[in-house]
Design a protein around this nucleic acid. Structure first.
Length: 455
RNA sequence: GUGGCUGUAGCUCAGCUGGUUAGAGCAUCAGAUUGUGGUUCUGAGGGUCGUGGGUUCGAGCCCCAUUAGCCACCCCA
């Protein structure tokens, strides 16, 4: 028997971690509900068809596939062997695998909408908090099993949705006391840029290259663009684009000068202006900031895109999203536009832990420990404890009679705030001793009064 | 998928240019202490040094392979 272990990139969560994670998740859920979103859950696994081809070539490689059952049955042997040959050539084969763990929440949601569009009330606003799985190599802030919190609106093209989602971002991070940079851009602006530089078929090449600007610097980006087949002149236009800086209004003026001649560019700029007009000007800390280098990898985005990064800490993006015009079209139901955002719970947790942002109230374990000082004593203690439990206090009676030492240590390790001691002496005069473990102060209280004691 | 670093007690680690029986702190258990903890003291248990092979009179230390974890790239939350 080898040492017990868990798969790479997965984690067990102890009490303390679960409480902190719940704190994050509940904060996000509450804000989603405030904005009228309703919960949805979908299965851990989807049919492989549902997921394949939706995340680009790289994404497809990272989908966890589930091996079919029954392959060892002799009557399946030939099929399985042929299927395996296909898999070795990088193809998928239903005879070997037809299911996969979900890779994100958006595509399963689109599948759900496509399946149920007849019954849903549009615009349909749903939120979803569930784990997803990616066969990435784990590293800092990257896990193979992690949670996403998504909110999407489908069936509406109104930019008011983008405004609301942007507000959800700022509200949530404000509640979590996190300092973040909420970046916004429009795919339409990127398309306009591509139109000016070698055609729309170059859009992906351009976005991949400029996305690396803050990591590798402008020279490397130019190199990569040339390698990807753009001309010198086109690269010059892109460097002008990337050189745009200043506050949002300055950026908007500069982008107008550059791509204001294209239909697509004008549209993109209008969208950004619309959303920024709804921003409270005073609230500069949580203000959206335009970032024209923001591209986002997922290729189904068509309009406004968002990305959130934590300040003061080295961590990949902790949230992202955007508008997709025809997501359900992939599943045969066209003309349902949508827009959505996602929070990365695990990265938010890591950032908050690193910056020590969790409030102490997050700990919510046992509040009162009743000492066990004998059979008769603990019987009284038990009935009193039940009364306090009825009142909603979290209580425990130490599981066996033992030395004070042990019972104190138990309370200390579980961070229990109060100890209630009923020994033979207290039993005689019908009292108990309440001790506040933090300070060590203690007082005697009559047994009938314990129920009214304010812990 | 590509590259770098690390694996010694439950945890954090030390272990010199290879040399007797592999150590420390914390944690655990027992005792000093028969009703007041987090202090102190004493003692105890706990290791096939990640795994397999090689070099050597001799390997925790050197070499090779393998495995697991961490980090970076790629990509992303």
């Amino acid at each position: 028997m080898s040492k017990p272990s868990i798969p790479q990139g997965t984690r067990d969560f102890g009490a303390d971690v679960v409480r902190k994670r719940s704190y994050i998740i509940n904060t996000i859920k509450n804000v989603f509900e405030l904005y009228g979103f309703e919960p949805l859950e979908t299965p851990a696994m989807e049919n492989l068809d549902t997921l394949m081809g939706k995340y680009g070539e790289e994404g497809d490689k990272l989908i966890f596939k589930i091996l079919n059952n029954g392959l060892s049955d002799p009557k399946n042997t030939d099929k399985a062997k042929m299927a395996f040959e296909n898999v070795l050539q990088g193809k998928n084969d239903k005879n070997l695998t037809e299911r996969a763990l979900k890779y994100d929440l958006t595509i399963p949601f689109a599948r759900y909408v496509a399946m149920n569009h007849g019954q849903l009330t549009f615009p349909f606003k749903r939120y979803q908090v569930q784990p997803v799985w990616r066969a990435d190599r784990p590293q800092k802030g990257r896990y193979r099993e992690f949670y996403q919190c998504d909110a999407d609106v489908v069936g509406s093209t109104s930019l008011l949705n983008e405004v609301e989602l942007a507000n959800i971002y700022s509200t949530v991070f404000q509640k979590l006391n996190m300092d973040v940079d909420i970046k916004i851009n429009s795919r339409k602006i990127l398309s306009a840029l591509a139109e000016l530089c070698g055609g729309t078929d170059k859009l992906t090449d351009i976005t991949i290259a400029i996305d690396k600007l803050d990591k590798t610097g402008i020279e490397k980006v130019k190199e990569e663009l040339l390698q990807r087949g753009l001309s010198e002149n086109q690269v010059i236009v892109i460097s002008q684009y990337l050189a745009i800086d200043g506050v949002n209004t300055e950026k908007l003026n500069k982008i107008k000068a550059l791509i204001g001649t294209t239909v697509m560019g004008v549209k993109g700029i209008e969208e950004l202006e619309y959303i920024l007009n709804y921003q409270p000007p005073a609230n500069s800390a949580q203000q959206l900031s335009i970032d024209f280098t923001l591209a986002r990898g997922l290729n189904y985005y068509t309009g406004i895109i968002f990305e959130v990064k934590a300040k003061n800490v080295q961590m990949g993006s902790i949230g992202g999203g955007g508008r997709y015009d025809d997501l359900t079209g992939l599943f045969g139901v066209p003309n349902i536009p949508g827009v959505g955002i996602s929070f990365g719970v695990d990265r938010i947790y890591d950032v908050m832990e690193e910056l020590k942002l969790f409030p102490p109230e997050v700990h919510s374990g046992t509040q009162v420990l009743f000492f066990n000082l004998g059979d008769a004593e603990s019987k009284i203690a038990f009935s009193l404890m039940q009364q306090l439990r009825d009142k909603g206090l979290r209580c425990e009676l130490y599981h066996e009679q033992s030395k004070f030492d042990k019972q104190f240590k138990y309370a200390e390790r579980k961070q229990i705030a109060y100890a209630v001691m009923i020994g033979s002496r207290e039993l005689e005069n019908n009292t108990c001793i309440i001790k506040k473990l933090g300070t060590g102060e203690q007082s005697a209280v009559g047994l009938p009064d314990l129920i009214r004691y304010s812990f």
